[in-house]
Design a protein around this nucleic acid. Structure first.
Lengths: 204, 204
DNA sequence: AATGTACATGTACATAAGTACAGGAACGGG
DNA sequence: CCCGTTCCTGTACTTATGTACATGTACATT
C-alpha cells in the first residue's frame, strides 16, 4: 500500500503491478487513452519494458485495467459526495461545494473524459463509461424525480467537458442556479443579494 | 461538387482532395481521431496511399482538415437551427425539433464528440472544439441571458455525450422540460395533458 | 502529334509500437 | 550454503505507420 518508489530489480509483484497501472492512468489522464504505450508506461513507472507486458496479456488489457482504476476513483469521489445531497433541497451549498471540488480537480475531470472517450469508440468500455453517470442518477433519484436527476447528470457531463476544454467551470453561482433550476427547486435565500434575472430576458 | 466515385488515375485534384478529407471524416466519426491512418483513408476513399500524403504535409494536417470539415458541418446545422430560437419563449416546439434532429443524427453526434476529444488532448484544436459551443451560446444569448444560454449549451454537450454513449437521447418531452427550466421559462400549454411534477419530489 | 507539366500510383525505407523470450537476479526452503 | 521458483530485465523480432520518392499517366499547350 505504500507509494514509495520501486526499487529496480527487487521482487514485489503486487506493488509493481499497481505502479504500472498508476503510470498508465497518468498517461491516459494527460494524453488520452490512445496515447498509452508500453514504453511510455515503463518510462513513467520506472520499470523495465518487459514488466509492463508481464501482468497484462495485451496493451488493451492494460488500458482496461487503468480505466477501471479511474472509474474506481470516480466512484469513490461520488460516494463521498452522496451524503451532501440530503440537504440539496433545503441548502444546496454543501452539495455544490462537493461538485466544485470535482470540477476543480483536473485529474478527475480528465479521468471522466477519458472514460467517456473510451466508451464512445470501444463498445466493451461503454458500461464502464456509464457507471458513474448511472450512479449519480441513482443517488439524485433518492431526493428528486428521475427525469430531473438525469437532467442534472447530463448537465454535469457537459460541465465536465467544458471544464476539460476551457480549463475552468461556469462558477459556483451559475452552477448553483443551474442545478437548482434543473431540480425544480427555488434558490435558497442568500446573505449577499443575488443578481437573479427571473424574467429570462437578456441583460444587455 | 459531385459525389460520384473517383476514377482511378484520372486527374482531378480538387475532387480527390475532397474525397480524401471526406474519407478521413468518416474514419474519425466511426472510430475517433486517433484511428486515422493514411492507409485507412486511402482504402476508404479508393485512392492510392501516395495521394493521401500529397495534399497534406503530415497526418496531423490531414486530421485537422477533416476536423475542420466536421466543424463546418456542425456550424451549418447550427445556422439552420438559429431561426427557430426566435419562438423559443412562446413555443419551443420547433426549436426542440431541430435540436432533436441533431441528437438523432449519429454522424453529427460523433463528429461533435470527436471535436471535443481532439480539443482535450490537442491544445491547437481547443478553439475548434469550442467554436460550435460558443456559436450556440451567442445564438441563445439573443433571446435569453448569457448565463442561461451557457447552461443550455453545457446541457446539450452533455446530451451529446449521452446520446453517443447510450445510443439515444432523453426524449423530446424531457429535453423540452429541461431546456425550458434552464431558460427560466414556463412550459407552454399543451394539448395532451403533461405529467408535470412541479414539486420536485420523487415519483415513486 | 509532340511534349512538358502537374497529378497519381506504388514501392521502399525509417521509426514506433506490441509482443515473445532468454537470461539473470532475488527470495524462500532445504 | 545450495537450489528451485518466481520475478525482473533487456533484447530481438514482427507488424503497423508516416513519409519520401521514382516512375507512370493524363491532359493542356503548341
Amino acid at each position: 500500500m505504500t507509494d514509495a518508489p520501486l526499487t529496480p530489480g527487487k521482487r514485489d509483484p503486487a506493488r509493481r503491478r499497481r505502479a504500472i497501472i498508476h503510470a498508465a492512468t497518468e498517461i491516459i489522464v494527460a494524453d488520452g487513452p490512445a496515447a498509452l504505450t508500453h514504453r511510455a508506461v515503463a518510462a513513467h513507472a520506472g520499470v523495465a519494458l518487459g514488466s509492463t507486458t508481464q501482468y497484462f496479456s495485451s496493451i488493451d488489457e492494460l488500458r482496461e485495467a487503468a480505466l477501471n482504476q479511474l472509474a474506481e476513483e470516480i466512484d469513490e469521489s461520488l460516494a463521498a459526495i452522496e451524503p451532501f445531497f440530503k440537504t440539496l433541497k433545503t441548502d444546496p451549498t454543501d452539495a455544490i461545494t462537493e461538485l466544485l471540488k470535482y470540477l476543480d480537480d483536473p485529474r478527475a475531470v480528465h479521468a471522466d473524459i477519458a472514460l467517456m472517450s473510451s466508451g464512445i469508440n470501444t463498445p466493451s468500455m461503454q458500461a464502464l463509461a456509464l457507471r458513474w453517470s448511472n450512479h449519480l442518477i441513482d443517488m439524485l433519484s433518492e431526493h428528486i424525480d428521475r427525469e430531473r436527476a438525469e437532467a442534472i447528470a447530463i448537465y454535469l457531463d457537459g460541465a465536465t467537458m467544458h471544464a476539460g476544454l476551457r480549463g475552468h467551470h461556469p462558477g459556483r453561482e451559475a452552477i448553483t442556479r443551474t442545478v437548482m433550476a434543473l431540480a425544480g427547486l427555488p434558490m435558497p435565500p442568500t446573505t449577499t443579494p443575488t443578481t437573479e434575472n427571473v424574467s429570462g430576458e437578456p441583460k444587455e
